[in-house]
Design a protein around this nucleic acid. Sequence first.
DNA 1: CGGGAATCTGTAACCTTGTTGCATTTTTCC
DNA 2: GGAAAAATGCAACAAGGTTACAGATTCCCG
Lengths: 157, 157
Amino acid sequence: MDLVNRPRDPVDTNTRTEALNLLKAKGLYKTRARVAVIGVLLQSDSPMSQDQIAQRLRHRYDRVTIYRTLASLRSAGLVHRAFTGNRTWQFELSRNCWEDQCHPHLTCSRCGKTHCLVGLEPPIACRSYNGFVIHRQQVHFEGICPQCSPCAHTDGH
Amino acid sequence: MDLVNRPRDPVDTNTRTEALNLLKAKGLYKTRARVAVIGVLLQSDSPMSQDQIAQRLRHRYDRVTIYRTLASLRSAGLVHRAFTGNRTWQFELSRNCWEDQCHPHLTCSRCGKTHCLVGLEPPIACRSYNGFVIHRQQVHFEGICPQCSPCAHTDGH
DNA sequence: CGGGAATCTGTAACCTTGTTGCATTTTTCC
DNA sequence: GGAAAAATGCAACAAGGTTACAGATTCCCG
Ligand SMILES: [Mn+2]
Ligand SMILES: [Mn+2]
Ligand SMILES: [Zn+2]
Ligand SMILES: [Zn+2]
């Protein structure tokens, strides 16, 4: 059980405790990979791709393990996916939003990071529209994030 | 020039003429592949993936050719891409909407087809929001299309 | 504790979508 | 008709993601 506390993973004690609590609450096995992945997502303010998570964890875990870890967390409801313009999934914790009703996201064309736009209204259409039954909806933007557009606040627009 | 009229492609005379006109208007080379791809998109009321287009054309053209054909049409402004939940691009003619401001789309979980929801309001956010510069926006739904939900009109919901 | 069942992990192999290089074929225009 | 420009087919490649299976962890209960 103490093997879970692998020192090299970039997860501090508080985050690790929180991750363990989340796993416990869902009745999931407590494994190093899961603690590490949840830790990374807890410390991130934006969704992350499998590759970004793996990099953050210094490739200490196999690609497949990360995918499967995310799948477990997802089916437990702890994590959900957001789709973006490029064809990679972005994963984030299901704290304020869920896979079927998610705030909009913006993917920055310059730095490639996906940001959460929590201030914008998520619901565009209700459960059914014109014969279509709507299960999930997501809004995606492409553009430039504030960090990448220093001219944003000097620009008159 | 008559080689363009390959009889086996599922494109009738009117559609072929329309495709040739579009190519002429944009100053693009008139090739069988382009006429065929435009024809398929003209006859489709919903966006199609490369694979769907290739199937419709009975794999008479190489995958790469279809991709490059779509790239040409796209840079000429005749076609644009919409992204969906799965990681494949969906291509449609740029008639009523464009890549940077597109009506919402719904991908049916049952038949896998992507439908255009032209009645819904496209614009959610303006060009800039809270420091983010927005270049493109797209809304995507997952659900069941009317053809796949016969219970939709008998259901009380 | 200790041991067995259930579950997770790593490795390898595989699939799909999409792109690139290069030689050959078409298209255009004169 | 013939040359330049562009498009095509083929092979190879890359990235994201999934599956199979053997070996390692985790859990639970006595
Ligand atoms: Mn988010
Ligand atoms: Mn559409
Ligand atoms: Zn950025
Ligand atoms: Zn359907």
